[in-house]
Design a protein around this nucleic acid. Structure first.
Length: 1018
RNA sequence: GCCUUGGUGGCGGAAUUGGUAGACGCGCUGGAUUCAAAAUCCAGUUCUUUCGGGAGUGUGGGUUCGAUUCCCACCCAAGGUACCA
């Protein structure tokens, strides 16, 4: 009987669904294991072969853990809020909820056919009001909390209020806005209700603030930095301006240090940890205050410039200061003489996009303000410059420039002839700055002389503190996260406004559901899409959403118009799976008490500084308020590599015919002057196969060059091509004569075009010309073939719709089955490595499954042979180790070896084949279930105990020793394993082949490693 | 520039602690079976060779009896990141 994978797979998928085989219970005597794969955004394109890679790996691990006796939680859901559905709504008017539902159904179908052991009863969707009720709830908890730096955790806002009532904020050590005023208890009680609310907003973990954003008026939305190219939007090329908007922010900076420290406690990939570390960007140093020296002519207030430096030890090397052009003091301190120049510079800088400025690292530019600051120790005047190498957004937007110790300061000083004092003992700084902290000995620096970097730094800070002009400080690059989006398809904020102050809607009235709108675009007045809703006001008496017309600002108030960003819903979904249908709480204490945290999280590395950082922040917050038992949500994380597409490229060849108007010589090279084109191919209908074209030009370059007659060496190709061209582009006889007589010049131009990869087979041939996507656009296309085939060029790049290189799993499932696809994706290579998709090898794993099937053709109760047992136990050992190490590719090889060996041994013994079915089951669950049933079991294989490895079956009595001479293997010799070192040496030395190798020479040294190797030197 | 990861046959990739480099699969070559094809099975397949051997894991050094593995310098590729003071 043949291996009928279609029947088998359908049968077991149905069985699993009907029997809820993978439903996890929140109570069990077994140990728990939580295996999670990142949930997908359900895009309209459906799953491609890259998506399942991580899911298959997670599924193998989850199934393995079930065999190992764990109670496994392996859920799946959808991150279903997002931009594509909204854009589709804008174009078509179809409600994003409908688009999303359709896409989810398609995803579910595709996921089901791959045989994953998901517990679908726990599915979550971030766009489901029952789910986002709890996203809104977390937001409210954040709003009601502040960060106490003394206890180093988030606390309820009421504790802050009582502190204010006792002492004002003088004794409060909190994460708060920079511009928070200082007040005492009396001030506090004297403040109006609104002022008190405004002050509290400066402490809340989520707060409203004016944030500078990239606003694109044409698109009516805020763009992220990477959505802007050369100052215009990437999509549409519309102008983008910097604009201040009132937006919600998350005070993630309060957690900067804990987010950093937590990385040491979790088993995540190093590159991912590194990018989070860089993103947080901790730097230790000091803040130093420089007093601006008042100019004689001005009697205005005195100014102070605060700078952050990581090198307070080099303070005596300061020879100038630089402010960012945007720095608020620039206008105030610039002298009248310098005013015009400074203003021109500031204006020129503002015109350049931040991207431009960052990209242009080489140009040195700046302007002197005319003002001076006083050096805190020497009291010498220090000139104040502005320069665009100082960024307003980092630190204080001002630096103390130490040209001898910082290359940028050095270059700037050189360029503007500013002195470069040397404060390093025994270091030559005539060529470049010296930035090696470890080898620094300070000199020429008063009380710092002779000290190392470390000693000088702490000494300088102590002295600055004495003067009241500085202190040790830790600076972070991490910024608070903007949490508002001007979009429709996201979670609404549970917020209404009373006298412009935000108020939270009480838990019992959540969820606050998205209103219906007519248009999904921003309003004409530039408000977010929710501004189009007619019923979007909050009635505080009825506690319900009512018509905007009822707004009276006494009982009915306007609701927030922004929605939450994509990462809101994904920041707590992993916990919600533990108790997904709970309407009373985000999850029960029992549920999270049982499951605790994610044991294994698998997903893409692109989420390193987004989802994975924000989720860690939310988890720490939930931990602080006693909702989560663990401070980190995932103990181990694996990044699966990306599956790349292999694009197929065809070459379109067009022509231009021009008059030759003259000839000349340039540096001995013949040149031709050409006149206007008398003919240019407009319909570009000729496609030339790769092999032919590559004889003429180098196809590796992205834009193949134009080329003329003379450069083509291949006459056969030339004639064939010319014939086609004459025919296709209607070149007249006169023109042909003109070309032949060299009065006219014919130039070919080549355009590479991507072709849908589904039209190309694994030998790079186009398999069906009439299915080609460009066929309709280019009716009557002609092909110049090689050996009757059109061969395309292949290029490995990211799998995307745009490159027409997307391969979806459906066709492969249809042709080879889900088990083959699962095995093949694992067999491609190491899980964490990116690799191009190529179906060429899938027949290998498929025929392995057929061999496996055959092996179970005859089953008997015969006693297994020693050979059988050895093969089995070797396999058990390797497979178990491989799964634990996430080395799934090598266990597929191991299975192949095992089946090849057992087939050769003609093994029919159930006591071998039963455990083998369990070993295979995590990888190829359908066939394993079917074989298990054939072995006489009525229960699913899913919970069958994993076979025990027994060392005794692998014990060998002899070893085939490699005998090498000078490290090179010469022959092998089978010897008993219990033979001692001296005995081995004696046997080897007595051997004929040894004598032959030595040819009478006396060996200098003989190395014998029992059980491993013999090496003879001489 | 910096950080990270990697570089092994025609291809994907093995070699877990320094001990037989190239497991397993694809592809290719030859053979069996077949009227024929598909499928299946068997054998071979790093390169080179005067058939003794010689070379060989990005390059050049080093440590070692022995290096894909450890150390130093460099080259290349991919990904991330950036005037971060």
């Amino acid at each position: 009987m043949n291996y009928n994978f279609r029947e088998i797979e359908a049968k077991w998928q149905k069985y699993w669904a009907e029997n809820e085989t993978f439903k996890a219970s929140n109570q069990s005597d077994k140990p728990k294991f939580y295996a999670l794969s990142m949930f997908p955004y359900p895009s309209g394109a459906g799953l491609h072969v890259g998506h399942p890679l991580g899911y298959i790996a997670g599924d193998i691990y989850a199934r393995f853990k079930r065999h190992k006796g764990f109670n496994v939680l392996h859920p799946m859901g959808y991150d279903s809020f997002g931009l594509p559905a909204e854009q589709y709504a804008i174009q078509t008017g179809q409600h994003p909820a409908i688009t999303t539902e359709t896409n989810i159904n398609r995803y579910r179908e595709q996921l089901d056919q791959l045989g994953f052991s998901f517990d679908w009863s726990r599915e979550v969707r971030t766009s489901d009001p029952k789910y986002y009720k709890w996203t809104q709830w977390v937001f409210i908890q954040l709003f009601n909390s502040w960060y106490n730096k003394t206890s180093d955790k988030a606390e309820d806002i009421s504790t802050l209020i009582s502190l204010f009532e006792q002492d004002g904020n003088t004794k409060v050590n909190a994460a708060c806005d920079d511009d928070t005023p200082v007040f005492d208890a009396e001030d506090w009680s004297g403040f109006s209700e609104k002022t008190q609310q405004q002050i509290l907003l400066k402490y809340r973990l989520t707060y409203l603030a004016d944030t500078e954003v990239n606003w694109c008026p044409a698109l009516g939305t805020v763009l992220a930095n990477d959505e802007i190219v050369n100052g215009v939007s990437e999509r549409g090329g519309h102008p983008v301006i910097r604009k201040k908007m009132t937006q919600w922010s998350m005070r993630i900076t309060a957690y900067a240090q804990r987010l950093l420290d937590g990385l040491d406690t979790i088993d995540w990939p190093q590159p991912l940890k590194d990018s989070q570390t860089n993103w947080i960007g901790r730097s230790e140093g000091a803040s130093v205050t420089f007093n601006v020296i008042p100019t004689e002519r001005s009697d205005e207030e005195s100014h102070k410039i605060e700078v952050f430096t990581t090198r307070p030890d080099t303070i005596f090397g300061v020879s100038f200061m630089t402010l960012a052009p945007e720095h608020e003091l620039v206008a105030k301190i610039t002298t009248p003489e310098q005013k015009d120049e400074v203003e021109a510079y500031v204006e020129a800088t503002a015109k350049r996009s931040e991207r431009d400025r960052m990209a242009d690292v080489k140009t040195i530019s700046g302007v002197f303000t005319g003002a001076y600051a006083e050096h805190p120790f020497t009291k010498e005047p220090v000139p104040i410059w502005i320069g665009d190498y100082v960024l307003a957004s980092y630190g204080t937007g001002a630096v103390m420039a130490v040209p001898c110790g910082d290359q940028r300061d050095y270059d700037f000083a050189k360029h503007y002839n500013i002195p470069i004092p040397n404060i390093f003992k025994g270091i030559d700084i005539s060529e470049e700055a010296f930035a090696d902290k470890a080898n620094t000995i300070i000199g020429n620096s008063d009380f710092l002389n002779g000290l190392s970097y470390k000693e000088a730094t702490s000494k300088a800070i102590v002295e600055l503190e004495k003067l009241g002009q500085g202190q040790g400080k830790i600076n972070y690059r991490l910024r608070d996260a903007v949490f508002s989006r001007q979009r429709y398809w996201g979670e609404p904020f549970p917020v209404y406004y009373v006298d412009d102050m935000p108020q939270m809607i009480a838990l019992e009235h959540l969820p606050l559901e998205l209103p219906e709108v007519e248009k999904y675009l921003p309003t004409e007045t530039g408000e977010p899409p929710l501004g189009n809703a007619t019923d979007w006001a909050w009635d505080t008496e009825q506690c319900t959403v009512v018509s905007n017309q009822l707004i009276n600002d006494s009982t009915v108030f306007p609701l927030e118009l922004n929605t939450m960003p994509g990462w809101a819903g994904s920041s707590q979904y992993f916990n919600r799976y533990m108790d997904p249908h709970n309407d009373e709480a985000i999850y029960s204490k029992e549920a999270i008490g049982y499951w605790q945290d994610v044991d294994l999280y698998i997903g893409g590395s692109e989420h390193a500084t987004g989802h994975l950082l924000y989720s860690r922040f939310w988890q720490k917050f939930l931990f602080d308020i006693g909702i989560a038992p663990k401070e980190e949500f995932a103990q181990k994380l694996i990044n699966q590599g990306m599956i790349l597409g292999t694009s197929a490229i065809v070459y379109r060849v067009g022509i231009t015919i021009q008059h030759k108007v003259g000839e000349g010589d340039v540096n001995g090279k013949k040149t031709i002057q050409l006149g206007d084109a008398i003919k240019t191919s407009t319909n570009n209908n000729l496609y030339v196969s790769k092999g032919i074209l590559s004889r003429a030009i180098n196809l590796k370059s992205e834009n193949p060059p134009h080329w003329g007659f003379d450069e083509i060496q291949d006459i056969e190709f030339l004639n064939e091509l010319f014939e086609k061209v004459v025919q296709l582009y209607g070149i007249s006889n006169e023109e042909v004569d003109g070309i032949m007589s060299e009065k006219l010049v014919l130039t070919y131009n080549v355009t590479p075009i991507r072709l849908d990869v589904n039209n190309v087979n694994s030998s790079d041939e186009i398999i069906s010309f009439d299915k080609m996507t460009f066929w309709n656009e280019h009716k009557g296309a002609e092909f110049l073939l090689e050996d009757g085939k059109y061969i395309v060029r292949r290029e490995v790049e990211k799998m995307s719709k745009r490159w027409l290189n997307v391969v979806n799993p459906d066709a492969i499932c249809e042709e080879y089955g889900a088990d083959s696809l699962r095995l093949y994706e694992m067999f491609l290579g190491p899980l964490e490595q990116s690799k191009p998709w190529n179906t060429a090898g899938i027949t290998g794993v498929h025929s392995f499954l057929k061999k496996l099937w055959k092996l179970y053709g005859t089953l008997g109760d015969s006693e297994p042979s020693a050979e059988n047992l050895k093969t089995l136990h070797k396999t058990i050992k390797k497979v178990e180790e491989d799964i634990e190490n996430f080395s799934f590719n090598t266990s597929v090889s191991t299975f192949m070896i095992c089946v090849n060996e057992l087939t050769a041994q003609k093994c029919t013994s159930k006591s071998i084949l039963e455990p083998l079915a369990i070993l295979v089951s995590p990888y190829a669950p359908h066939i394993a279930e079917e074989l298990w049933e054939r072995l006489g079991h009525s229960e699913s294989i899913a919970n069958a105990p994993f076979p025990n490895f027994e060392e005794k079956y692998l014990v060998e009595s002899t070893k085939e020793y490699p005998i090498s001479f000078n490290g090179k293997l010469r022959f092998k010799l089978e010897l008993p394993l219990d033979m001692g070192k001296d005995e081995i040496e004696a046997v080897v030395m007595a051997h004929d082949k040894t004598k032959e190798q030595l040819q009478g020479r006396e060996p200098k040294k003989i190395i014998v490693v029992p059980g491993k190797i013999v090496n003879i030197v001489g």
